[in-house]
Design a binder for these strands. Structure first.
Lengths: 259, 259
DNA sequence: CGCATACTTGAGCGAAATCAAGGCCTGTGG
DNA sequence: CCACAGGCCTTGATTTCGCTCAAGTATGCG
């Protein structure tokens, strides 16, 4: 069936490192599938169309509606992408981390804003040079195409979540996805704190913070997760969690009134 | 600001016609940006990796979870893309029509199902040949990349709709978008019936058919749209409709209790 | 004409939002 | 060291928007 663990199955791209001279040029070249030849001229070209960039927690580095001049590849940290409505309602459309590209969802202007929720290191490309980059390194275009395809898969999954799932199912889906994302990137069984706040979670899942909190409590009472004192969340029963997320286990997955 | 009329601003691609020998090879070539040279050899190659395909109303031509072997370009008609849950809940992730590509949102398997809601004519590509097609016609890759980018813009807009908008705002957003889509494709002020049923609309907007019906009535009572006897919908006040969709006119856009 | 399908409208209900109160941790300053 | 303020989170009480259930209307087709 649908495989939403794609992101973890391939090696992180780390394109950023490939083009920061003196950092990791050799290995970076391998990462982006350019093992064969990356001449000094190539490196010089890459450096000319891009710059490393670090933004601090809470800093906004893409503003919806601005002319889409840049294109980013995340190297470290987590950022949230979101859209706001005039009256303050917000929808987070995704969280991006190492290896992810930011800036695809744009026509002439960005369709979203982006803010770091941790310190984020990335590489900023000039969007007008993208065609030239593609021309010189077809492997990058291919990578980007695959990434875009996968983003569409994830977006459709998220539409199902937002349009049709209950609060508990939404939380379970998110935790399941996040758990998989971590399990391949970092040391496996994660008792790690989530980098985002309850407010971010609510804006991602189309809920309020209170409902997120209640859904977490429900899952905790079911024994599927545990919530640490520092609000860190660990998955105790990953299979059960996935069942609840997909509403597969039907009745058994339903939340029993705890009276 | 955000421009979600992109699809209408460019000429329809009609790639299908370009590669159906004897149909429209010459003009099709122009459509996909290959005006300069399209040799017999090129045409032969295109024909070898693709086939015209017609599906009838109600027919499913992509099934979620199936191996993603094909890739489609719509030439005529409208189809719905959707995801189902085991218990029958459904989310329509988009409607596609002439010029649109279908099959991007797939890793190794399709992440969605597709069903024609009118007779649909399209061109079916072999997905494994996609790289070869790109290699021979870089313009197609470029088109597809732009299309994918735009799909991401639309998907994020839809997430905002599903996560944060009220029923009336959702309907208004949809009608606004559909109205623009038509106004460039067909003769402008459309008193045309929508091709999709209320059930489709509900599954697209994350609502029930009853709520869709009520929201349509609300907009009708506000004088923003009119609903014909055959359920055709015309937009009477497009500016007002857009304001309601974006919750821009705040209080004035709010639905007044009609009592 | 009868039946099926698609849609509309009303009544009551329920899941999540809103409103409100309180707990926990951290940092700051007395 | 404690007192206090301010995030951030949890939990409870109440409200509300959209869902469910139910009835009725309109259109199209054999």
């Amino acid at each position: 069936m649908l495989d939403h663990r794609y992101r973890s199955q391939r090696a992180p791209i780390n394109l950023s490192e490939a083009i920061i001279p003196g950092l990791c040029a050799g290995c970076g070249a391998r990462h982006i599938g350019l093992c064969d030849a990356l001449s000094d001229e190539d490196l010089h070209f890459l450096a000319s169309v891009s710059r490393p960039l670090t933004v601090q927690k809470g800093q906004t580095f893409v503003v919806e509606g601005d002319a889409a001049r840049s294109f980013f590849n995340i190297n470290y940290g987590v950022a949230k992408l979101y859209k706001d409505m005039p009256d303050g309602r917000r929808q987070i459309t995704g969280f991006v981390s190492a290896g992810d590209f930011v800036g695809l969802a744009a026509d002439s202007c960005y369709a979203f804003s982006a803010e770091a929720i941790q310190e984020v290191r990335m590489c900023r490309f000039d969007r007008t040079e993208l065609r030239n980059v593609f021309g010189r390194f077809p492997a990058i275009e291919q990578r980007l195409f695959d990434f875009a395809s996968h983003e569409l898969v994830v977006a459709q999954e998220q539409m199902l979540l937002l349009g049709r799932k209950t609060a508990v199912e939404r939380l379970a889906s998110f935790l399941d996805g996040w758990h998989h994302r971590l399990s391949h990137t970092e040391d496996s069984n994660s008792g790690r704190a989530l980098p985002m706040t309850r407010a971010d979670l609510a804006d991602y899942l189309g809920l309020t913070i209170e409902t997120v909190s209640r859904a977490l409590s429900s899952l905790r009472k079911l024994g599927v997760i545990s919530v640490a004192a520092d609000h860190g969340v660990s998955v105790l029963q990953s299979t059960r969690l996935a069942e609840i997320a997909q509403a597969a286990g039907s009745s058994s997955a339903k939340i029993q009134p705890m009276a």
